[in-house]
Design a binder for these strands. Structure first.
Length: 313
DNA sequence: AAGATCGTCAACCGCCATTAA
DNA sequence: ATTAATGGCGGTTGACGATCT
C-alpha cells in the first residue's frame, strides 16, 4: 500500500471517527441555520465541512429539510391533512415525497411515520395486508367518509375536501359512494347524519333500484351494525353469546361490499375471514387485537367510538 | 414504585438516479 | 463511456416518553 493511499485512508478514517451521529444539539442546529441563512442550502457535503459541522452532508440535509426549515409545520396533522394522505396514498402508494408535496409544511418523513404508526396499525389488527385491496376499501368506505364527517362537523371551512372534489370518493361505485356520502351528509334540521341514517338511505336507494339485496337483508345490515353499537360499550359483549362468528364491523364491510360491483369479493372475504378468524377465537386468545382495535383505532382522532356509531339515539 | 411494554418520531441506512468531471 | 460525487427516496432503527401491569 502506497504511503499516499495509506495517508488518504487514515484521513477518511479520522473523518469517520470525528463524525457525530445521533440527535442534533442546539448548537449544531444554530450553526446549520446560520450557515444556510448566509450561503443558502445545497452542496451538503461542502456545507457540512465549511460550517464546521461534524456531520455528513446527508445528515445536514435531513436535519434541515425535516426539522429546521422555517416553513415546517409542527403539531398534529389536521383532519384535512389526514384525509389528503389517505387519498393520495390510495393513488400513489408509498410515494411519500410526492404526497408531501401536496401537504405544505409537512415532510415525507412525517407522513411516512403517520402512515406506519396510525394507518398500518389498523391493518395489522385486522390481519389485512396494508397494501391489499381489502384494506384500501376499508379506508375508502369507512375511514375517509368518517374523516369527511368529522371535518364537516368540526369546521365550516373544510371546503378543500368534499366528496365532489375527491377523486377517490368519486371513484367509489355508486353504492359505496352513496354510503360514504350518506355517512357525512347532514340531514337538514337534524344535525350531522349518522351511520344508521346512512344505511337507511342506502336501503332506500337499493329498494328503488333493481338491487339484488332484499330489504330484509338490508335490515339485517342495520341489525348487525346495531350489534356493533353494543360493542362500543363493551368490547367483549360481542362474544358474550358465544357468537364468535359475528363481528358487526366485519359484517358491515362484507355485506356492503357484497352489494358492490367494483370489489374483488374473494379478496375481501379472505380478508374478513382472516380478521374474523382471529376475533372468532375465545376472548383470551385475542385480547390484544380487540383491545387495540377499539382503544387505538378509535382513540387517535379518526375513530371516535361514541361519535362514529351514533346508533342508539 | 418499578419494570415491562407500547407508540412516536428523529435519524440513519442503503439503494437508485442524476450530474459533473 | 466511465466513474465518482451528490441528492433524493423509502425502509428501518433506536431513543425516549407515556402507559400499563
Amino acid at each position: 500500500m502506497s504511503s499516499s493511499r495509506k495517508s488518504s485512508t487514515n484521513s477518511s478514517e479520522d473523518d469517520a471517527k470525528q463524525l457525530r451521529r445521533g440527535p442534533w444539539t442546539l448548537e449544531e442546529d444554530s450553526i446549520l441555520i446560520h450557515y444556510i441563512a448566509l450561503h443558502g442550502e445545497g452542496l451538503w457535503n461542502l456545507l457540512a465541512k465549511r460550517a464546521g459541522l461534524k456531520r455528513t452532508g446527508k445528515s445536514c440535509r435531513l436535519r434541515w429539510l425535516n426539522y429546521l426549515k422555517p416553513d415546517i409545520k409542527r403539531g398534529n396533522l389536521t383532519l384535512q391533512e389526514q384525509f389528503l394522505i389517505l387519498e393520495l396514498h390510495s393513488k400513489w402508494g408509498n410515494r411519500w415525497s410526492k404526497i408531501a408535496q401536496h401537504l405544505p409544511g409537512r415532510t415525507d418523513n412525517e407522513i411516512k411515520n403517520y402512515w406506519r404508526t396510525r394507518v398500518q396499525k389498523q391493518a395489522r389488527y385486522l390481519k389485512i395486508d396494508a397494501n391489499s385491496t381489502a384494506f384500501r376499501n376499508v379506508i375508502r368506505c369507512l375511514w375517509m367518509p368518517r374523516l369527511l364527517q368529522k371535518m364537516e362537523g368540526s369546521s365550516t371551512s373544510s371546503s378543500i375536501m368534499t366528496s365532489e372534489n375527491s377523486p377517490v370518493l368519486r371513484s367509489l361505485d355508486l353504492t359505496s359512494q352513496h354510503q360514504a356520502l350518506m355517512t357525512v351528509q347532514k340531514v337538514p334540521g337534524q344535525g350531522p347524519g349518522n351511520l344508521s341514517e346512512a344505511v337507511q338511505c342506502l336501503d332506500q336507494k337499493e329498494q328503488n333500484s333493481d338491487s339484488c339485496v332484499s330489504s330484509s337483508e338490508s335490515m339485517n345490515n342495520i341489525s348487525k351494525i346495531s350489534q356493533f353499537a353494543e360493542y362500543q360499550t363493551s368490547p367483549f359483549r360481542m362474544f358474550d353469546n358465544n357468537d364468535y362468528n359475528m363481528l358487526a364491523m366485519d359484517s358491515y364491510y362484507v355485506d356492503n361490499f357484497n352489494n358492490s360491483s367494483c370489489y374483488n369479493m374473494e379478496i375481501i372475504n379472505q380478508a374478513s375471514t382472516s380478521a374474523l378468524g382471529d376475533f372468532a377465537k375465545p376472548v383470551g386468545d385475542c385480547h390484544m387485537a380487540e383491545n387495540n382495535w377499539v382503544n387505538d383505532g378509535f382513540a387517535d382522532g379518526l375513530w371516535s367510538v361514541g361519535e362514529l356509531w351514533e346508533l342508539r339515539s
